[in-house]
Design a protein around this nucleic acid. Structure first.
Length: 296
DNA sequence: AAGGAACTCAACCGCTACTGG
DNA sequence: TCCAGTAGCGGTTGAGTTCCT
């Protein structure tokens, strides 16, 4: 569907007039807030009607993208941790350019973010590593990913070894990925450098829907790997919030996860998939607590 | 300090898969 | 079965930023 086209969505009343002019380009804080407010309050059963109802001069597709990539609760903005980087490399080796599949295994990261990260950084790193392989002409090296560069510590090797295990252990790609990353201990996660302060981050500073880690927790350079990282910081805070923790676990054990709109959950965070990320779920939970109250 | 190159990343575009009538 | 419409995916673009000379 192209911008400005008129459509009658499934089960939706036609709300957009034909040839309506849609705004393009970067989103303003006001637009973000309008979209955020609308979806938090009413959800997005039909994206094409969202911009009209929310009073936005955007098309539904643009709204959807903005929500998914930027405004959705539980997103981690900022630089990838070392563990995430390892995960992306391993997944890319396994899945290729299946960014959305990869995103399912990296809670809080969007396909777009992973794609950008790959294209702008990891691809070059891998190519560089492959060049190194050619250079040293080592037969024992099965994968170029296994070559640590001078600036990266040896810990990078781990997941690539894991990824090889994946290939051996299962023919079902998704299953093996899930299995492997369930086993992957989320301990040694390091931030690579200070994150930029992004649009929605300073926006969230203003509105403060739940714990916004990106803005609240200082992130340290990779060199200072002994510092608390973002996830650890959250876990620390999360696990020490007894009321929240008990509510959260009660919610899970009593099957109340369906109280959260499905659009607020990542597939990989649904308990039956076996992969849970406390940061994302926690953020979503607290973020949505507020919205449930508003709706009810 | 300047300006050009390189890089980053949000957003757009085009396509496919899917759904309901 | 076909058609219209939506959701979602992956590739690409381009404005803004950073780096380098």
């Amino acid at each position: 569907m192209l911008a400005g086209e008129y459509c009658r969505p499934m089960g939706c009343k036609p709300l957009e007039k034909p040839k309506r002019r849609h705004r393009k380009g970067l989103w303003s804080p006001e637009e973000d807030q309008r979209l955020k407010n609308y979806i938090v309050q009413y959800g997005h059963s039909c994206w094409s009607s969202v911009p009209v109802k929310a009073g936005l001069q955007r098309n539904g597709k643009s709204c959807r993208l903005r929500w998914i990539n930027y405004l959705r609760p539980g997103l981690k903005h900022g630089l990838f941790t070392l563990q995430e980087e390892e995960t992306v490399l391993a997944l890319h080796r396994l899945l290729g350019n299946k960014w959305s599949k990869m995103a399912q295994h990296l809670p809080g990261r969007t396909d777009n973010e992973i794609k950008n990260y790959w294209n702008s950084y990891l691809k070059k790193k891998v190519m560089k590593a492959e060049g190194l392989v050619d250079q040293i002409n080592t037969q024992n090296i099965n994968s170029a990913y296994n070559i640590p560069t001078s600036e990266e510590p040896q810990t990078h090797v781990r997941s690539f070894e894991l990824s090889e295990n994946m290939e051996r252990s299962s023919t079902d790609t998704d299953q093996s990925v899930t299995h492997v990353f369930n086993c992957h201990p989320p301990k040694e996660t390091f931030q690579s450098s200070f994150p930029k302060l992004l649009f929605a981050e300073w926006l969230s500073l203003d509105y403060g829907h739940g714990p916004n880690l990106s803005s609240a927790v200082p992130v340290v350079p990779r060199e200072n790997s002994d510092h608390l990282n973002l996830e650890d910081a959250f876990r620390h805070g999360f696990l020490h919030n007894e009321q929240f923790a008990s509510e959260f676990h009660h919610g899970l054990s009593s099957g109340e996860t369906d109280k959260f709109p499905s659009q607020f959950m990542f597939e990989s965070q649904i308990p039956e998939s076996g992969f849970f990320d406390f940061v994302s779920v926690g953020e979503m939970y607290t973020g949505f607590n507020m919205t449930n109250d508003e709706i009810n």
